[in-house]
Design a protein around this nucleic acid. Sequence first.
DNA 1: CGTCTCACG
DNA 2: GACGTACGTGAGACGG
Length: 964
Amino acid sequence: MTDATAASKNDASETASNGDGSGLYLVDGSGFIFRAFHALPMLTRPDGTPVNAVLGFSNMLLKLLADARAEAVAVVFDSKRLNFRNEFYPDYKAHRPEPPEELKPQFALIREATEAFCLPCLELEGYEADDLIATYARLAQEAGRKVTIVSSDKDLMQLVRPGVGMFDPMKNKSIGPDEVFEKFGVPPEKVVDVQALAGDSVDNVPGVPGIGVKTAAQLITEYGDLEALLANAGKIKQPARRQKLIEFAEQARISRRLVLLDENVPPPKPLDELRVREPDHQRLIDFLKAQGFRTIVSRVEMEMQKDGRIADGAGESAPSVSSAPAAKALAAVPSDEAAERPARKTVLHVPEVRYELVQDADTLRRWVERARETGVLAVDTETDSLTPATATLVGVSLSTEPGIACYIPLAHVASGAAAGQLDFDAPPPPVQIPTAEAMAILKDVLEDPSVMKIGHNFKFDHQLFARNGIKVSPVDDSMLISYVLDGGAHGHGMDELAELHLAYTPIPFKEVCGTGKNQITFDRVPLDKALAYAAEDAEITLRLWTLLKPRLVDDRMVTVYETLDRPLVPVVADMERAGVRIDKKALSDLSQSLSVRLAEIEKDVHALAGQSFNIGSPKQLGEILFDNLKLGTGKKGKTGAYSTDSSVLEELSEQGHTIAQRVLDWRQLAKLKSTYTDALQEKISPVTGRVHTAFALAATNTGRLSSTDPNLQNIPVRTEEGKKIRRAFVASPGHKLLSVDYSQIELRLVAEMANIQALKDAFRDGLDIHAATAAQVFGIPLEQMTPDIRRKAKAINFGIIYGISGFGLGRQLGITPGEANAFIKTYLERFHELKVWMESIKAFARQHGYVVTLFGRRCYMPGIQDKNAARRAFAERQAINAPIQGTAADIMKRAMNRMPAALAAAGSSARMLLQVHDELLFEVPEAEAEDAARIVRGVMEGAAHLGVPLVAEAGIGDNWEEAH
DNA sequence: CGTCTCACG
DNA sequence: GACGTACGTGAGACGG
């Protein structure tokens, strides 16, 4: 955390309370309902009434009342849909859709909940909740009382001032002047001026077209306020901006009136009546019980018992609860203020952080029961290896709410036991529930559609449970939520996110298992350490989810997450688990022959060099070529070493230097041998006899997958030698491999997104696209096309996708950057729509800091504002490429998500094995191959309906090379 | 652990 | 006028 944010946190919490016990909390009830509804998993009462927002609301109030400084709390609601703003702007909030059916019954329940908590409900006909909040904030401030507005609505940020702060209950975060500045780029008192310019599409506030928050903040900062800006609009340098501001001046003034809150509405209740009263506990408990909220009921009951109000204890105190030291530290993270604050007498406690070791079935059943009450269960599995398709399940950790987690050891051995050998004197293993029994107990809740399971990188856990006969569903993944929200901004590993969002450093894995040759597998970790580590992982996962999930709604990323990334978890888990068959014999034979040939080439090269050296060392090679043999001057990189990459060696080879070509040959074979023939054999699982890659779902900046351990997305295909490796990827006996790939998908998407008519026509007519572009750009009829001209057009087409530069194209084609620039110029003249599109993408990236794919995925580009021109140019090329590459990735994900159902519906038993960005590889019984090819092509071509056709081509063979 | 090189899309 | 370049990945080898 930076000093600035730390300071602002303090400011905000001081605003929230000055410690004299006069804090007034104004809860934005209407805003909260919508956010909680969308953020929390659906949950129903036994009678079927949906209550997820009611539960969120009740929990939030409990937490608020636990705050010792909450002297007065009031919940404010909107009255009707129409208010005074509609009188002068009828379209205000006009496009709001009806609330969802599941939300409607919850409005009344939330008012009931407020009354059950004995809190005043404030509402006033003709005004929005925000106006009432503004009015009470003013009244309280005039009375010298501190105010905290409990809301995540940015429209309320204009009210922040000394003595008035905000608290975002969904993100558990205080909002002070610094946070407001971060959001709007201006201090709170100028927020309305910025909103007046930027508008708000959700509330139908028009603003000034073409001006967003960033530009608005810049203008307001420069001119002071809206009126001063409008008065001086004629002096603005940018012509478009000047014209818009003059044309839409009146619209901006109306927008300001729409967003400006009315601080002078008649208060429905006097300020003094807003006091926290001793709740009528019985009434509260009756209400909570009626909703089926058993966990918070027991919490309230425990509280009463503690205060001596009731004699019989209804609390579910779990046996053998251990309080882990790490847990204490977790409780003290700044975002969880309530946990470390001493409670007041009438306060309802937030539970302490407690981790429990589960070693018997009954205790495990209690955890399952608790998960059914909350409807939410964070899950994490511990194993003895990182390959989930073959790893042994060592234990499972669960967390049902922040602060509460457990670990269930399943396959731990006594910590002193020696690894991998029989030892009759070894101490007995610890008491554990037999894995099969534990799985049987967990299965019900893990497959329960009304309990949301949460994991971090759940694909891993999904495979382990699948191998134990459990199809976990529904599943949320905090890693994927983070990826959808902040892809490109930072990594999404749990440790990194915990540091970033929770200001907490989880226990490092190496602290538990050691490192290097002393590393032990998790089954040999002593149970107390295993508990602290594993339970913490589950709990952090839950906390990250609580924090990030609501942001999907705020950032409008729900659809991307729900339709693209979340459904991919089981699909890709099944692919990894299936694995791909490798002909080990073919690889080892190939390895053998490569060894022989490498030795021969090595001898040649040493002879040509006149001395022996390590060809694999670029440093030694460079010195031999340029210092000893003086083959040209050589070019040095930034580290001062000679470059010896293939372009350099190819040039030397063309000049007639045999040694360069021989080194190139050696390099190619050495690469094939070390990376593919040798390493791949090692990766064949002794358990399944197949290779199980891991697809990373949150690794790239564009939405693509990546493949590791081993990387099966870069298996050679271009050279004859490489193809031999591909032939070692084979189908099981009686099966075929089916490879289906998209034809020219990225160029089709350029035509679509930039709306290039000539290119779209060419695709619709099914032309050879590179020849067709060559004809367009160079003005040569198709029948006179030469391979060389086509090659040039092809290079430009690729260049466009990469965010073209004269330098890059020139290098690719072996021409000067000047000549390349001339090509590009002609290309952009012929396809004039392209230039407009590229400029608009760059402008968008500069304004927002990210770019967007056709399906709404955001790719953040941190470098786009860099002062360094080169880094900025790099970011601009990324900004051009990311929407293209990312949209292709989105389309492939749509196809993959639909594939299992499409195959099943057709009765096909084809299994999806690999994805290589625009290609899918399947294994299918021989007799079904043709049918499967038809189905797969259909799904892939129908994965998006665009102005250009999507085309997928299929191949069938006994090995991957044949099928491709 | 960073750099270079090279395999793929 | 200068920056230093085609976009996105992962892995192996080298050498500090």
